[in-house]
Design a protein around this nucleic acid. Structure first.
Lengths: 248, 248
DNA sequence: CGGTTAATTGAGACCACTCAACGGCTGTGG
DNA sequence: CCACAGCCGTTGAGTGGTCTCAATTAACCG
């Protein structure tokens, strides 16, 4: 590693296992100055032309769709370092919205810069490709979980996934990580009403499987959590396993 | 159009709206001789290295995952003409399986040929890219539907989607199309038990919204079906509409 | 014509929902 | 410093969609 600390984006992309020396810095070089978004703001709305690329530098954001009946479905959670829309420029308009959950720092990335970088290095191209495929694999896993797992198992599965993803970018410490979402927002992820999230969380807490307080999630017993959720991390495709020195 | 009838793959890809004259034939040229698979056979299994590309030439196939508890989740339906795995070569191993539902003809495609074709034409590259993005958009829509739509609305939504997709490859006639799946398999798609699929189908049939018999689905009243399902086709990103949008 | 698979029907149980009310915390303005 | 509003979390009660188990009929196939 060189002098500058690699961004969370690069920390994540290193898990693909392809990046050569210096390429992390090249990727960081194209990420512009972040703009601040307040909580619950749209970064891009459904119907917009997807002309810009964005990276979540800080905070939690999501992809979401709203059903006819007005129920919101969060179809992806984006953590610090995640690309929002590496891929969608080919489509004419957004079929979903991207919005912040917490306050966020969002950086614009020029799609021309991305193209240049991809053309300049097969390993970078392969790494960005890997990133979009992992996003898709997560989507498949979420679909498989939804409606087939009971809400308590489903929630623990989500926490297991987020723990690994947060750990991969240096944001998990001692089995706990920050997740300042309301129970309503968690419900929009796993597809249940907020009232039900509440009851489930209490039961899980009583079982010693998880604690949620002050916007942090703690998994005191990883093995039990994994067993309870039926969690298998293969869909995250982490070629370089887990731990990154935690930041904060 | 030239002499030879375009394959269903090309019929589908034309909806992207990018292909130039002659490029459809180029794409068809790389699709090899199909091999026959019986019903309920794995084309690729979870854990396999994703080294080959496949196209479903004839029949119905699916991506699926199996939960710890043994429940199967079908996370994508693949119709004639669909690429199975245009994208997954970057990942080390399959995180899901691809299997036939009905008897299928499956053609192998050399990934070298695909690469050559992509390098030879930006419009072909853009078109194949579009294809994988539409697959992902369908995945998002399925995730949004699952667990948020009541099973009857969900099922009608699926039928509306399949109707447009089948129509787009010339396999829908007078609002009906072939879909020789068991109620169990349909249940694995929308995440409900086969017994419940049965009751729902009967209710929908009684309402005149759909008929299922002899392995065919018929939607006698498209507008009512769309209204009932809350269906909005935008996520299929058909730049050249397959069916004219319902008037009134 | 017998065997197998799929569709259908019924009964009872459970998971998650809605509606509603209450408590706790925080920020604001008087 | 207190009153108040507002959001979030919590709790209760009753409803309903979907489940499992089981049995029966219908359709298909050799």
């Amino acid at each position: 590693m060189s002098g500058a600390t690699p961004s969370r984006t690069v920390l994540k992309l290193r898990h693909a296992g392809h990046l050569l020396a210096g390429e992390g810095e090249a990727i960081d070089g194209m990420i512009g100055m972040p703009r601040r978004f307040g909580p619950r703001r749209d970064v891009i709305a459904r119907g917009d032309p997807p002309d810009r690329l964005h990276v979540i530098v800080e905070g939690f954001a999501c992809r979401y769709k709203v059903t006819e009946a007005g129920r919101r479905a969060i179809v992806a959670l984006m953590l610090p370092g995640d690309f929002c829309d590496l891929h969608v420029a080919v489509l004419g308009r957004m079929d979903h919205s991207i919005g912040t959950l917490t306050e966020c720092q969002v950086a614009d990335v020029s799609s021309g810069d991305v193209q240049t970088l991809i053309d300049s290095s097969p390993t970078i191209a392969r790494t960005l490709w890997w990133s979009t495929l992992v996003d898709e694999a997560i989507l498949r896993q979420w679909l498989a979980n939804m409606g087939r797992l009971r809400a308590d198992h489903h929630l623990m599965h989500l926490f297991c996934e987020l723990h690994l993803r947060m750990e991969g970018i240096g944001l998990a410490l001692n089995g706990s990580f920050r997740l300042p979402l309301t129970q309503e927002e968690i419900g929009d992820v796993i597809g249940v009403a907020s009232v039900h999230v509440n009851r489930i969380v209490q039961a899980l807490r009583a079982d010693g499987l998880v604690t949620l307080q002050g916007g942090r999630v703690a998994l005191p017993d990883w093995d039990r959590a994994v067993a309870f959720a039926g969690f298998d991390a293969d869909y995250l495709h982490l070629k370089r396993p887990g731990r990154v020195a935690p930041i904060i």
